[in-house]
Amino acid sequence: LTVQLGNLEWHFDNPEQALKMAEELAKRYQLKVEIDNGTLKFK
């Protein structure tokens, strides 16, 4: 699973870790998370 923020990307083997990080980033920057083809992206 990949977490993508702008041109930064983090790759996780563990989806739970990816979701946890995505939630933290979304909270911190007040963004919405969307999943696009196995990639978590922020809007």
Rank of each mutant, 00 (worst) to 15 (best):
L1S: 05
L1C: 14
T2K: 11
T2V: 11
T2P: 03
V3F: 06
V3S: 03
V3W: 03
V3I: 11
V3K: 01
V3D: 02
V3R: 01
Q4C: 11
Q4T: 09
Q4M: 12
Q4W: 07
Q4H: 07
L5S: 03
G6D: 04
G6H: 07
G6Y: 07
G6R: 05
N7R: 14
N7C: 14
N7W: 12
N7V: 10
L8I: 11
L8F: 13
L8Q: 11
L8D: 05
L8P: 00
L8Y: 14
L8H: 12
E9R: 15
E9Q: 14
E9V: 15
W10H: 02
W10V: 05
H11T: 08
F12L: 03
F12I: 03
F12P: 01
F12H: 02
F12N: 00
F12G: 01
D13N: 11
D13V: 10
D13A: 11
N14P: 04
N14M: 07
N14K: 09
P15W: 15
P15M: 14
P15L: 13
E16I: 13
E16D: 11
E16F: 13
Q17G: 06
Q17L: 13
A18E: 00
A18G: 07
L19H: 09
L19K: 07
L19I: 12
L19P: 00
K20H: 08
K20T: 08
K20E: 08
K20V: 08
K20N: 07
K20Q: 10
M21S: 03
M21H: 09
M21A: 06
M21P: 00
A22F: 06
A22Y: 04
E24T: 13
E24R: 15
E24C: 15
L25C: 07
L25W: 09
L25T: 01
A26H: 03
A26I: 05
A26V: 05
K27C: 11
K27T: 09
K27L: 11
R28M: 09
R28W: 07
Y29A: 02
Y29M: 05
Y29Q: 01
Q30Y: 10
Q30T: 05
L31K: 01
L31M: 08
K32I: 15
K32Q: 12
V33R: 00
V33A: 05
V33F: 15
E34D: 07
I35F: 14
I35W: 14
I35S: 05
D36E: 13
D36L: 10
D36S: 13
N37G: 14
N37Q: 09
N37H: 09
N37P: 02
N37L: 05
N37T: 04
N37D: 08
N37R: 07
G38P: 01
G38F: 07
T39E: 04
T39Y: 14
T39S: 05
T39D: 03
L40G: 00
L40F: 07
K41E: 02
K41R: 14
K41T: 12
K41I: 12
F42G: 01
F42N: 01
K43E: 05
K43P: 03
K43A: 10
